[in-house]
Amino acid sequence: MDELSLYVLDITMNSVRAGADTIHVTLTEDDETLCLNVRDNGCGMSREQLQRLRDPFFTTRKTRKVGLGIPFLSMLAEMTGGSVHVSSVPQSESEQHGTDVVATFGKTHIDCIPLGDMVSTFTTLIQGSPDIHFIFTHKTLRGTVALDTDELHSILGDLSLAEPEILQWIDGHLREQYEAIK
């Protein structure tokens, strides 16, 4: 994967598969660091799952025997002098269950890849799960890009956010916000 935005998409897909109905995706940048936080209220992970998270030969899926999501993200973060921290509360333990992933990247490090097309990542997530409440925030030193899908739902009523025409509006809306902070 040659864009950080693809890692963001991949890691947020884990929250989708964990059955979350609310997912916060927050990027915070300064001149040196990019911090990614994905926080969900999905089913969470047990202690054993959490311990084996960085093991590529551990996965809960049945279709294949490897799981590369977190190993990829960890490798990229560590290559740039950053790190990945995952905390999780499983459904069996608390009503306040969910998972919180924080990844930091050294932006100035030679091994850091470009952020790439975050708008495509956001619209892809909405397209795949139009009923999940996504709160996207990208803070930079030049300004903030933000989208809360609940606000769109309150305008659009019963219409699905996955309707191509609506997705294109969201795409344009986000791109204009990015243009403004370029």
Binding site: L6, D10, M13, L68, S120, G128, E165, Q168
Partner: peptide, 23 residues
């Protein structure tokens, strides 16, 4: 298919191309 394998292989632009074409 939008799992890690799909995303790493380039599924995001493929999905977007379908959405765009349908629209």
């Amino acid at each position: 298919g939008m799992a890690t394998c799909g995303i790493a292989a380039g599924a995001r632009p493929v999905l977007n191309a379908f959405v765009e074409a349908v629209s």
